[in-house]
Amino acid sequence: MCHQTVSLISRYIEEHGVPTVVIGAAKDIVEHCGVPRFLFSDFPLGNPAGRPHDVASQHATLKAALALLDAAPGPMTTMQNPIRWSDDHSWKEDISNVEKMSPEEIARRKAEFDKTKEIAKQKREDAGV
């Protein structure tokens, strides 16, 4: 959802005259929304701006984003960050992937989700929203 939130804000402020560049890891969500400029980091959710404690990868990522700000020829320009998260791509298999979960895991998550939803509802009511 973060990617959708940012994509919508990007479109809005760009429409009002401020150039933007999105650095994100969820390619489908950003491109489905459509943004002016998008640097796609094929990294796990949470670290789109480079590998943690790896200044060189962060520097290269920001450099690519700035280049995109400067030189994107038109709207919906996506550039892929050339940095690989890791030689092993198995990290892509697990996130939110029900095909990889056992029935027990799914049942546990359902119970947890129901509980979180109830707490959130209570919080919203308490906050008057």
């Binding site: 796990p44 789109p48 990522t61 920001l62």
Partner: peptide, 30 residues
């Protein structure tokens, strides 16, 4: 909201590149 199996949020600059932006200002790229 992040991929807890694959990574962590211990380094702010991996998701909020404040130091990398400060460097870009310091060396005149912006």
């Amino acid at each position: 909201s992040f991929d807890r199996n694959a990574t962590h949020l211990d380094d702010v600059n991996a998701y909020y590149p404040v130091d990398r932006l400060r460097e870009a200002v310091a060396d005149g790229r912006v």
